[in-house]
């Protein structure tokens, strides 16, 4: 899109938002329809395919065994990764991870990690030697905006869906072909609400076209209790502290409905 088209789009979307309406007929704080399918991939320990309007994300969990980090010899590890594959948008390019994909994975990781979602102390096989390592990969298939919120739902759905692989005590090997009935030790369900700001108007669940022209965004991770577990501002615009407090309040409200998808 060239500069002229961009500024035309911005004018158009901003005029709509001033009337409290969006291009697709939504109100500023409406989410698009969410659907979640889990357990769809047999090779993964846990998997989910999640849609938010036209945005679609695939998430998979692989669980392996490995040596623990020296600062937590009896703790399992968690790693969240995402890759913005060119299949999802012509804005993405293949090659080493872009800052945008690193940000996406790290913000999703932060919400899961900092809320203590997974009790890593229960993922110990042999202290100091072997622990379970949980890898969550988030793959957008179609990016029509708001990968943060739906990426976290996909990651959480896949984690909740995951079954532990079998561990053979004799050979000290993981048998990846056989899954046990055991689930991961999950005790929190963080969800994220990402707000956009365009010409001073605040809205939630942005589409790709809105993301192209919005000034700034704020992602807020909310725990079951309604506490905040992660935040990240993005975009080259600003927000005021009162806008931020309003967004937090709104996120606390919206999080209840979002969590119903898990």
């Amino acid at each position: 899109m060239n500069n002229k088209e961009n500024s035309n789009l911005k004018d158009y979307l901003s005029k709509l938002l001033k009337k409290k309406i969006r291009e697709d007929g939504r109100k500023p704080f409406d989410y698009r329809k969410i659907s979640v399918e889990t357990g769809i991939l047999s090779q993964a320990n846990g998997s989910a395919r999640v849609k938010l309007g036209d945005t679609e994300v695939l998430a998979g969990v692989k669980i392996g065994a490995g040596t623990p980090y020296p600062d937590g010899p009896a703790d399992g590890t968690l790693m969240v990764n995402s890759e913005l594959s060119p299949i999802a948008s012509d804005r993405f390019e293949s090659g080493p991870p872009s800052p945008a994909s690193i940000e996406l994975s790290r913000v999703i990781d932060r919400a899961i990690r900092e809320s203590g979602t997974i009790d890593v102390s229960k993922l110990c096989i042999k202290s100091g030697e072997k622990v379970w390592m949980v890898f969550v990969d988030v793959y957008p298939i179609n990016d029509d905006g708001n990968l943060f919120d739906i990426g976290l739902i996909a990651a959480m759905a896949a984690l909740k869906n995951a079954r532990m692989p079998k561990y053979d005590e004799k050979t000290e090997q993981v048998n990846h072909r056989e899954l046990t009935k055991d689930k991961l030790p999950i005790n929190e369900e963080p969800v994220m609400c990402t707000f956009g700001k365009l010409d001073g108007e605040i809205f939630v669940d942005s589409t790709e076209r809105e993301e192209l022209v919005m000034d700034s965004r704020l992602s807020i991770g909310i725990t079951k209790k309604g506490n905040i577990c992660a935040m990240q501002k993005g975009g080259e615009g600003t927000i005021t502290s009162s806008e931020m407090m309003d967004m937090i309040k709104k996120a606390q409200e919206l999080s209840k409905d979002l969590r119903k998808n898990l």
């Binding site: 725990t223 506490n227 577990c229 992660a230 935040m231 937090i248």
Partner: peptide, 12 residues
């Protein structure tokens, strides 16, 4: 505000 990040657990 031009930068906000947060991790951990806090109330509003």
């Amino acid at each position: 505000i031009t930068l906000v990040q947060m991790d951990g657990d806090m109330t509003a």
